[in-house]
Computed example of a mutant assay.
Amino acid sequence: MEKRISASISRTVQTRLVLPPDTNHMGTIFGGTVLAYIDEIAAITAMKHSGRAVVTASIDTVNFLSSATVGNVLHLEGVVISTGRTSMEVYVKAECQNIETTEKTLTTTAILTMVAVDEKGKPTPVPAVVPESEKEKQLFKSAQDRKQQRMKINEFAKELV
């Protein structure tokens, strides 16, 4: 019987302070900095689910919805939303919070694919995920469509080279 793990086991939360070196000439956080934070939390999330080291296979979608500025607190949350044989899709959302007003704003959402690897760096099987919240269930149901889209993009990209 296939091992199954609830999505809540993988849920990971990080909090970061936006500092001046994190920002661009417009005073907002660099997109690349946000991407690095997203990749890190996705990796931790996938490692918690799989119990293995992981590598990033793809960043399928990143939606920059608003920006954070110096002094804002950035809250990131990741959860495994679907699994393949050796891969895990991780949904990450980032919200910024103004400390003075306590107002929170959704800044970024992303879906990444992480692959579990063994000691030799070879892909290794992962447990199936059991979605719990309505959002997780919706993302779980659409996982196959996202996988097919990734495969189409990869084939197209190979033809371009």
Rank of each mutant, 00 (worst) to 15 (best):
E95C: 13
E77C: 04
N72F: 09
S82K: 00
Y91S: 15
L76N: 07
M88G: 01
T105G: 08
E119V: 14
K104D: 06
E103T: 14
I111Q: 06
E95V: 11
H75S: 10
F64A: 14
F64V: 14
C96D: 14
D118F: 10
T86W: 00
T105Y: 07
K93N: 11
N63M: 05
L74H: 06
A110C: 14
V79T: 14
V73E: 11
T86L: 04
S87L: 02
V92E: 01
I99E: 12
K104T: 12
G84F: 01
T86D: 07
M88V: 04
R85H: 13
L112Y: 02
E89S: 08
K93Y: 12
L112F: 01
E89T: 03
N63Q: 08
Y91E: 13
T109H: 10
S87Y: 03
S67I: 04
V73W: 01
E89G: 06
V73A: 13
T69H: 09
E77K: 04
G78V: 07
A116V: 04
E119W: 03
E103I: 10
N63A: 14
T101W: 01
K104Q: 15
F64N: 09
R85V: 13
S66W: 05
S67W: 00
T105A: 11
V70S: 10
K93D: 15
V62N: 05
Y91W: 08
C96E: 15
T101E: 08
F64P: 15
M114T: 02
T109S: 15
T108L: 09
K120R: 15
G121V: 06
S87F: 02
R85Y: 09
T69R: 11
Q97T: 10
M88E: 02
I111C: 09
A68W: 06
I81E: 04
F64L: 13
L112A: 15
E103A: 15
Y91P: 05
F64M: 15
N63W: 00
V115W: 01
V90I: 12
E77A: 12
T86Q: 06
V62D: 05
M88P: 01
T101C: 05
N63G: 12
T86A: 06
T102N: 10
N72S: 14
C96V: 08
D118K: 07
A116S: 11
G84Y: 01
V80G: 03
Q97I: 08
T69V: 15
L74W: 04
A110P: 10
V70G: 10
T86R: 02
F64D: 11
V70T: 14
E119P: 08
L74K: 07
C96K: 13
V73C: 11
V79I: 13
G78T: 06
V90H: 01
T83H: 07
T109N: 11
N63V: 03
G71Y: 04
K122Y: 06
S82D: 13
E89N: 04
G71N: 08
N63K: 06
S66I: 07
A116F: 02
T109W: 08
D118V: 04
S82A: 15
T107V: 12
A68L: 12
G78I: 00
G71H: 03
E89Q: 11
L76K: 04
E103N: 10
D118R: 00
T105L: 12
A110E: 09
T86N: 12
T109M: 14
T113K: 07
C96I: 08
T108N: 15
I111N: 08
K122C: 04
